[in-house]
Simulated assay, not measured.
Amino acid sequence: MTLHSSHDGGRLVLTQGRLTLREQLPDDAAQLADGKPASLVWIDGVPGDGTSRAASMTVAAAKAGVYQPGWGLFAVIRTEDGVAVGGTGFHGPPDHGSVEIGYDLSESARGEGWATDAARALSEWALAQPEVMVVLATTEPENVASQAVLERVGFTRVADRGELWAYELTSPPA
């Protein structure tokens, strides 16, 4: 399925079939970090805790002057109705050819393939950027669902990072 990228009001928007990833700029991220919907309709009313924590990373990067558009948080949105089902994004801009991703789904959206679709689309976009050669992700050893997402996308487990299991992807996902 083809990944389409566009911009809407300065935001990067990635669309692939049933999935739309809409960048959350620092002002939106500040609202999400406070658990507010940030002008989005959320499947469970508000963003999940993981999405709020990721939004805090975008806010902190903006305050530190290191935020780079396109390399922060994205809302995971159902294309058909515009409802946000979670968040995904980067832990920061590329560093020495690599970038790390993360994802979080609202409770009501789990088990329907949204995390797999989001990780696939985000990784595909990242690997198409000239400054990215590797996409990284980490999970806690007991997070079997997240490990399955990464394996479905095509990530390979590599050397652990402390107590976290580490995965990498070096070619566009299938």
Score class of each variant (00 low, 15 high):
A33M: 07
A33G: 06
A33R: 11
G35Q: 09
G35D: 12
K36P: 00
P37M: 04
P37T: 03
L40T: 11
V41C: 10
V41W: 09
I43V: 10
D44F: 03
D44H: 05
P47Q: 07
P47H: 03
G48Q: 01
G48T: 04
G48M: 02
D49T: 13
D49P: 10
D49Y: 01
G50L: 04
T51K: 00
T51C: 10
T51D: 05
T51F: 02
S52P: 07
S52G: 12
R53V: 13
A54T: 05
A55V: 02
M57Q: 12
T58S: 10
V59F: 00
A60K: 15
G65C: 05
G65Q: 12
V66S: 13
Y67L: 03
Q68I: 12
Q68E: 15
Q68K: 14
Q68Y: 08
G70H: 01
G70W: 01
G72P: 05
F74Y: 15
F74G: 03
A75C: 11
A75W: 00
I77F: 00
T79M: 00
T79S: 14
T79A: 12
E80S: 15
E80R: 10
V83T: 13
A84K: 04
V85D: 00
G87Y: 00
G87W: 00
T88Y: 01
T88F: 05
F90T: 03
G92N: 11
G92A: 08
P94Q: 02
P94E: 13
D95F: 14
H96T: 04
G97E: 11
G97F: 10
S98W: 09
E100A: 15
I101A: 11
I101S: 02
G102M: 09
D104I: 02
D104M: 06
L105F: 07
L105I: 03
S106C: 15
S106I: 09
E107T: 15
A109Y: 03
G111C: 14
E112M: 15
G113D: 05
G113F: 05
D117R: 12
A118D: 06
A119W: 01
A119K: 04
A119G: 04
A121T: 07
L122K: 00
S123T: 10
E124C: 08
W125L: 11
W125N: 04
A126S: 05
L127N: 01
L127Q: 02
A128F: 09
Q129P: 11
P130H: 07
E131C: 08
V134K: 09
V134H: 02
L136G: 09
T138F: 13
T138R: 06
E140T: 14
E140V: 13
E140W: 07
P141D: 12
N143E: 06
A145Y: 02
A145N: 10
S146Y: 00
S146V: 10
Q147M: 12
Q147V: 09
A148M: 12
V149W: 00
V149Y: 04
L150C: 06
L150G: 01
G154R: 03
R157M: 08
R157A: 14
R157F: 11
R157S: 04
V158N: 07
D160P: 11
D160K: 05
G162F: 03
E163Q: 14
E163C: 11
E163G: 08
L164T: 09
